[in-house]
Amino acid sequence: KYLVLALYDYQEKSPREVTMKKGDILTLLNSTNKDWWKVEVNGRQGFVPAAYVKYL
Score class of each variant (00 low, 15 high):
Tyr10Lys: 00
Lys21Ala: 10
Val53His: 00
Trp36Arg: 03
Leu28Ser: 02
Leu7Asp: 03
Arg16His: 15
Gln11Ile: 14
Val48Asn: 00
Trp37Val: 10
Leu56Gln: 08
Gly43Lys: 06
Leu56Val: 13
Leu29Gly: 01
Glu12Arg: 12
Leu7Gly: 04
Asn33Gly: 11
Thr19Leu: 03
Met20Asn: 00
Val53Ile: 09
Leu7Cys: 08
Lys34Arg: 11
Glu40Ile: 07
Lys38Asp: 04
Lys38Trp: 15
Gly43Thr: 06
Glu40Asp: 11
Lys22Met: 08
Met20Trp: 02
Leu5Gly: 04
Thr27Gln: 12
Glu40Pro: 01
Leu3Thr: 09
Trp37His: 03
Lys54Trp: 09
Leu29Thr: 05
Met20Glu: 00
Trp36Glu: 04
Glu40His: 06
Lys34Ser: 13
Pro49Glu: 01
Lys1Asp: 09
Gln11Glu: 15
Arg44Lys: 12
Val53Gly: 01
Trp37Ala: 06
Val53Leu: 15
Arg44Val: 09
Val41Gly: 08
Tyr10Arg: 02
Val18Leu: 14
Arg16Ile: 14
Lys13Asn: 10
Tyr10Glu: 02
Thr19His: 05
Leu29Lys: 05
Glu12Pro: 15
Tyr2Thr: 15
Lys34Asn: 11
Leu7Ala: 06
Ala6Val: 09
Gln45Lys: 11
Lys38Gly: 06
Leu29Tyr: 04
Gln45Glu: 12
Asn42Ser: 10
Arg16Met: 13
Glu17Ala: 05
Asp24Trp: 09
Glu17His: 06
Pro15Asp: 14
Met20Gly: 00
Lys22Leu: 05
Lys54His: 13
Val39Tyr: 00
Lys21Ile: 10
Asp35Ala: 11
Leu3Trp: 12
Tyr52His: 08
Gly46Ser: 01
Leu3Ala: 07
Pro49Phe: 03
Val41Cys: 10
Val18Ala: 05
Lys34Trp: 07
Glu12Asn: 08
Thr27Met: 13
Asn42Gly: 12
Pro49Leu: 03
Glu17Ile: 04
Ala6Asp: 00
Phe47Trp: 15
Leu5Ile: 15
Lys21Val: 09
Tyr2Asn: 13
Lys21Gly: 06
Leu26Gly: 09
Pro49Trp: 03
Lys21Glu: 07
Asp24Leu: 04
Val48Thr: 01
Thr19Gly: 10
Lys1Asn: 13
Val4Thr: 04
Lys38His: 13
Asn30Lys: 06
Lys54Pro: 01
Glu12Lys: 13
Tyr2Ser: 13
Arg16Gly: 15
Ile25Gly: 01
Val53Ser: 00
Tyr52Lys: 09
Tyr8Trp: 11
Asp9Met: 03
Tyr2Glu: 13
Gly46Ala: 04
Ser31His: 10
Gly23Met: 03
Trp36Met: 07
Ser31Asp: 14
Lys22His: 06
Ala50Asn: 03
Asn30Gln: 11
Val4Trp: 08
Ala50Ile: 04
Asn33Ala: 09
Lys13His: 09
Val18Gly: 02
Val4Ser: 03
Pro49His: 02
Leu29Arg: 04
Leu3Pro: 06
Lys34Ala: 13
Thr32Ile: 10
Gly23Asp: 08
Lys34Asp: 14
Val18Tyr: 03
Gly23Phe: 04
Lys21His: 12
Trp37Ser: 04
Tyr10Met: 01
Val18Phe: 09
Asn33Ile: 06
Val39Thr: 01
Gly43Gln: 07
Lys13Arg: 14
Lys38Ser: 08
Leu3Phe: 14
Asp9Lys: 02
Lys13Val: 10
Asp9Trp: 02
Phe47Gln: 04
Asp9Pro: 05
Lys13Glu: 09
Arg16Phe: 14
Trp36Pro: 00
Ile25Trp: 05
Val41Pro: 00
Gln11Arg: 09
Glu12His: 09
Arg44Trp: 04
Thr32Trp: 11
Leu28Asn: 00
Lys34Ile: 09
Glu40Thr: 06
Tyr2Leu: 14
Thr32Leu: 10
Ile25Leu: 09
Ser31Val: 10
Asn30Gly: 08
Pro49Cys: 04
Ile25Asn: 03
Asp35Ser: 11
Arg44Tyr: 07
Leu7Gln: 06
Tyr2Phe: 15
